[in-house]
Write a protein that binds this DNA or RNA. Structure first.
Lengths: 355, 355
DNA sequence: AGCGCAAGCGTAAAGGTTTTCAGAGCCGGG
DNA sequence: CCCGGCTCTGAAAACCTTTACGCTTGCGCT
């Protein structure tokens, strides 16, 4: 084969053109194919490019061509099953459209989030997707307003997934789940199984996603005629460790409850472990429900009844919506539905303890 | 505040320079700080940049500056807990060094892998990390050899994580776990609990990672004086669904075993479910072990005894090693250790059935 | 034969930044 | 007083590709 690899440095289009005996302009046209070029010439150029193993310099191309199609998705951490699924959805939808997808993890640090968005701006990303609930304070509002305007002024789009827009006028899209409805449904499920003492484990005051779930929980209790004092929210935050710690603590303090509504499935995992450590059984002694339906929720002990939030679809929807109506959608708000999936972690309250 | 945001289009360094009353050269120096500039001048430039919300054009910068520090990690899928952890490790280590990290998912498709690597080449990534076992055929060898030479010729580095180099001479680093040792240890654990009929569930002939685990399994059996026929490998591949299907099938066909060594924890999850569906208990009737120790393995029913492969450390090590000795390391092979973590899924074989 | 038109292709500019080279101004030492 | 050298700054080249513009050539029509 006439396979003359160059030894060092990048092959430029000039070398390809030279080898094919044409100018760089013709080579560029033959390679990108957006301008008619006689078949014979094109073949010569393509051949030369292949022989030299030419790859276009994306930076030079972006400089003149207005930027590569690149989407960025930023999450708290990739190892959280929920975030991973959202990221996979974004990645898949982006790949389907020939877009490159960059994933960034912030570890929940606003500073790193800012740095990453800045980086994406420098890099010329045309779509930035921020995922996950957040505590909505003034700092947050200012930060996101800044992102939105900055990205908008360079023609990029911002999508907020599961977090609120600081102001409906801002150039950003919002797409999220109906957390309140999901929480209300699963709380109702617990109530109709006979439970009256239900504690919500995993509140995170100020966090929009959790607050909505707590609101749904309270609403369901009220709808069933329970007084406001029937609500018992433990603000332990999210994560398996937090759930384990809070549940252990709670069991030490009181038994005035027969069911636990965990803020998400990871909290539920911790709670299940704590309950088992205490020698109690689920759902015999205590019923437990979670939120999100992560892929392994059915492998918990017992399989977890939870609220399914189609995370991958959330990611796909984010890019689909952002790319659909370039102008129409600014400021739009999309709400995705959820549904409860029943497994084995909910039963009737133990006979002696029905309130 | 004198906060004059531009309405459209990107702010260039010329505008910053103009506003600060200096040339682009001075502005560039003040901003990147790699050349001394008097404090007063620098302050004026920084002030102007902040007022205009200037962000450098990374493409233009990369064009002249030899490229941004960017690492790419490519995995089969982000939602697999193991891959997610590796990706997180790469991401974390890259972020620590101020590098940008891009994550790509191939879905196991060689075509998409090639496209992604090509893209990274165009984009000027300086470090490409390919993660995960793979079937090592001629197509694979040719493909990887091509990546290696192509990346090397433009000064980028290639790291293979958990997959073999097609040829030691090739400019690529290899870093992986000692799959064989881990498998041998966990098999020995089963043997010393008294099991003699152990089936390996999740073989994937040709896949280097799985073949190594099978080899370790066979070696342990041999070391305990069992004949080669004692080995029973079910080639069902990986994933929860595959494990569930294969285990159901196996239970229908035979009971000539008292323990299952699952190819990874997801297979184990499926197997556990299948065993429970059949009305059998773990470890009372059958013992089960997995591989990888994914974060939720301790929440399985029962908590899974498995082999811990420090996945995040694998990712961190990949970038650390690649960045450490630019030249020295080419062709080097790094092996990371594993250890077995004992939980509740292994017990003695049932009394009537010890062989 | 002469003219017009289209196809094919090359020249050059543009895109934003970094960096080299050199010029200008200044200070101190000889 | 002069000159060497130092500090600060600016003009311009370089990075690589795309594309607007215009030139040449050849063909078909009158």
């Amino acid at each position: 084969m006439g396979n003359d690899m160059v030894s060092k440095g990048r092959v430029t289009i000039r070398e390809v053109a030279e080898r094919a005996g044409v100018s760089t302009a013709t080579a560029s046209r033959a390679l990108s194919g957006n301008h008619p070029v006689p078949a014979a010439t094109r073949a010569r150029v393509l051949r030369a490019a292949r022989d030299l193993d030419y790859v276009a310099n994306a930076h030079a191309r972006a400089l003149v061509g207005g930027g590569r199609k690149m989407a960025a998705v930023v999450v708290r951490q990739v190892t959280s099953p929920f975030y991973a699924q959202v990221a996979e959805g974004v990645e898949a939808e982006a790949a389907d459209r020939g877009w490159l997808c960059v994933v960034g993890a912030t570890g929940g640090d606003a500073q790193r989030e800012m740095e990453f968005v800045q980086l994406m701006r420098e890099e010329g990303a045309r779509l930035v997707i921020l995922v996950g609930g957040v505590v909505e304070d003034d700092a947050y509002r200012e930060r996101v307003a800044h992102y939105a305007h900055a990205l908008d002024s360079s023609g990029a789009r911002l999508v907020l997934c599961g977090r609120p827009a600081p102001d409906p006028e801002i150039p950003a899209l919002v797409v999220e789940f109906d957390n309140e409805a999901g929480a209300r449904a699963v709380t109702a499920h617990l109530l109709s199984a006979g439970h009256r003492g239900i504690v919500f484990l995993g509140g995170l005051p100020g966090n929009t996603a959790l607050d909505a779930r707590v609101a749904g929980y309270r609403a369901a209790l009220a709808e069933h005629g329970l007084p406001a004092e029937a609500a018992h929210v433990v603000d332990c935050g999210l994560g398996r460790a937090a759930g384990h710690r809070a549940m252990t603590e709670l069991l030490k303090r009181t038994r005035e409850f027969t069911a636990v509504f965990a803020g998400d499935d990871m909290v539920a995992a911790g709670a299940l472990r704590a309950i088992a450590d205490r020698g109690l059984s689920v759902p015999g002694d205590i019923s437990v429900v979670g939120y999100n339906d992560i892929p392994l929720a059915e492998d918990f002990n017992p399989p977890l009844t939870t609220v399914r939030t189609p995370a991958e679809e959330l990611g796909r929807a984010a890019v689909r919506i952002a790319l659909r109506d370039p102008e129409h959608a600014a400021g739009a708000h999309h709400l995705l539905g959820t549904h409860i999936v029943v497994r084995d972690s909910v039963g009737a309250p133990p006979p002696g303890r029905a309130l």
